[in-house]
């Protein structure tokens, strides 16, 4: 498990990347997917997930679909066209950031 500070800055990027690769997902599904993909190393906290999802929806980056499941309502999130562009930018930015961090923290595998 990584510290929540590390995850906080990347939450948006993770959500957008996951959603832009699938048709639609709901909140619990997103947390489970991340957990599964990272072998439990990254666990999104619900306290941060929902505020971010709602904000992204308000910004028009995500669109939602409401479905009745048993006795309750489930909200499916999917990425809008503008959202896809933003997801791409976010991922590129993050990859650039990682390269910089590797350089900054001198993590390059030593040659020879």
């Amino acid at each position: 498990m990584y510290s929540s500070e590390l995850i906080k800055g990347t939450l948006k990027t993770i959500i957008l990347k996951l959603l832009s690769e699938s048709d639609k997902m709901y909140g619990y599904e997103i947390t489970q997917k991340v957990k599964e993909l990272t072998g439990g190393k990254i666990q999104l906290t619900e306290g941060a997930l929902y505020p971010t999802l709602h904000a992204l929806e308000a910004q028009g980056i995500l669109s939602t679909d409401v479905v009745n499941v048993g006795n309750r309502i489930r909200k499916y999130y999917s990425v809008t066209i503008t959202g896809k562009q933003i997801a791409k930018e976010k991922v590129n930015e993050y990859s650039d950031f990682i390269d910089t961090m590797i350089f900054l923290l001198d993590l390059k595998p030593k040659m020879g």
Binding site: Y26, G27, Y50, H54, R72, I73
Partner: peptide
């Protein structure tokens, strides 16, 4: 309400699964 329903579904999912 939106947040109530989102959290409700999430909690229910956790319990059910």
């Amino acid at each position: 309400e939106e947040l109530q329903l989102s959290l409700l579904d999430h909690i229910c999912c956790v319990i059910e699964n």
